[in-house]
Amino acid sequence: SLSAGLDLPGRFLFATLTLMTLIAILVFIEEAVYIYRKIPSSKRSIIIWINAAAPVISTTSCIGMWVPRSTMFTDFTAGIFFAIVIHKFLMMMIKECGGQKVLLRRFENGHFTITTGPCCCCCLCLPRVPITRQTLFWLKVGTFQFAVFRPVLVFLSIVLWTNGNYVLYNVSPKGPALWISCFIGALTLFALWAVGIMFRKVRILLKCKNIIPKFALYQFIVILNHLQTTIINIFATQKIIPCAPPLSSTARGSYIAQQLLIMEMFLITVISRVIYRRKYHDLEPPECVAEEPGDKKQTP
Rank of each mutant, 00 (worst) to 15 (best):
Phe12Ala: 13
Leu17Tyr: 01
Leu17Gln: 03
Thr18His: 02
Leu19Tyr: 07
Leu22Met: 13
Val33Glu: 10
Lys38Pro: 01
Pro40His: 00
Ser41His: 02
Ser41Cys: 06
Arg44His: 06
Ile57Ala: 08
Thr59Lys: 01
Trp66Tyr: 04
Thr71Gln: 05
Met72Asp: 00
Thr74Gly: 01
Phe76Glu: 03
Ile80Asn: 01
Ile80Glu: 01
Val102Met: 04
Val102Ser: 02
Leu103Gln: 07
Glu108Ser: 09
Glu108Tyr: 06
Thr113Cys: 07
Thr115Met: 15
Pro118Asn: 13
Cys122Asp: 09
Arg133Phe: 14
Arg133Val: 08
Phe146Lys: 15
Val152Asn: 11
Thr162Gly: 08
Tyr166Asp: 10
Val167Tyr: 09
Asn170Gln: 14
Asn170Arg: 10
Ser172Thr: 11
Leu178Cys: 01
Ile180Glu: 04
Gly185Val: 14
Phe190Ala: 05
Gly196Arg: 14
Ile197Tyr: 02
Lys201Ala: 11
Arg203Val: 12
Ile204Val: 08
Asn210Ile: 14
Lys214Glu: 13
Phe215His: 02
Ala216Tyr: 08
Gln219Gly: 10
Ile221Phe: 02
Ile223Gln: 14
Leu227Asn: 04
Thr230Pro: 01
Ile234Trp: 13
Ala236Val: 00
Tyr255Gln: 04
Leu261Thr: 13
Ile262Pro: 05
Phe266Trp: 06
Glu284Trp: 12
Pro286Phe: 07
Pro286Gln: 06
Glu287Pro: 12
Cys288Met: 05
Ala290Met: 09
Glu291Gly: 04
Asp295Gln: 12
Lys296Ser: 11
Lys296Glu: 09
Lys297Tyr: 11
